[in-house]
């Protein structure tokens, strides 16, 4: 009887503890998202730091910390977070894509391209990887490569305006005014009032 009573008390305590733990963890996440929505990225990052302290290999917390460091402009710390996340899970496309963000912010085109290419090795038509790779090509002035790349991606994402903007920029730089004009017109069909497309076409007198 005493043994049953002991196990019952232990079970109740255990349930209570687990319940309160879940509640507090959930609160930490909620708090982090709330602060992020308010633009308070430092506080949003601090909110999930207890989770990382408790478990340094908490993959999602580390990825989110990297994102919030990126939003704060702490690019080196963000890179460190994403490196850690990739070490925890080398298959993570989220982490590889995340890593491109602080690298692009520091204009480390080759390194960012390297990570985007790793994503494409697994997911050959991943939209974000292509966009970030195109950003690298633009940053390095690789206009011919960018034109071919953007044209190829545009055929896979025909409704997307961003890919067409990269295509139009490349064509403009390559002196292909007529095709750049046509491409910017396509951008305007998808995003009426698009500033860059409007300016380009106005400069050409439409």
């Amino acid at each position: 009887m005493k043994l049953i009573k002991f196990w019952s008390i232990l079970a109740v305590i255990s349930l209570l503890y687990t319940g309160s733990s879940h509640a507090s963890v959930s609160e930490l996440w909620s708090e982090s998202y709330r602060y992020e929505a308010m633009g308070e990225y430092a506080t949003a990052a601090q909110s999930i730091e207890p989770l990382i302290r408790h478990n340094p290999r908490h993959e999602f917390a580390v990825i989110r910390h990297g994102w919030l460091n990126y939003l704060q402009g702490k690019h080196n710390e963000s890179i460190d977070d994403y490196k850690k996340a990739i070490e925890i899970n080398p298959n993570s496309l989220d982490s590889l894509l995340g890593m491109t963000l602080p690298l692009l912010a520091q204009k480390r085109w080759r390194e960012a391209a390297n990570y985007a290419t790793k994503v494409l090795a697994t997911a050959s038509w991943n939209y974000f990887a292509h966009i970030r790779l195109m950003t690298c090509e633009e940053g390095q002035g690789q206009w011919k490569t960018l034109e071919l790349h953007a044209d190829s991606v545009a055929s896979r994402y025909p409704a997307d305006a961003t890919v067409l903007v990269y295509l139009a920029r490349a064509r403009s730089h390559l002196g292909k005014t007529s095709s750049a004009r046509t491409t910017y017109k396509k951008v305007l069909a998808r995003v009426p009032g698009h500033i860059e497309a409007t300016q380009y076409l106005n400069n050409l007198g439409r």
Partner: peptide, 9 residues
Amino acid sequence: WIHWFNTNI
């Protein structure tokens, strides 16, 4: 002074 061309000339 260095000038990069925005369009192809």
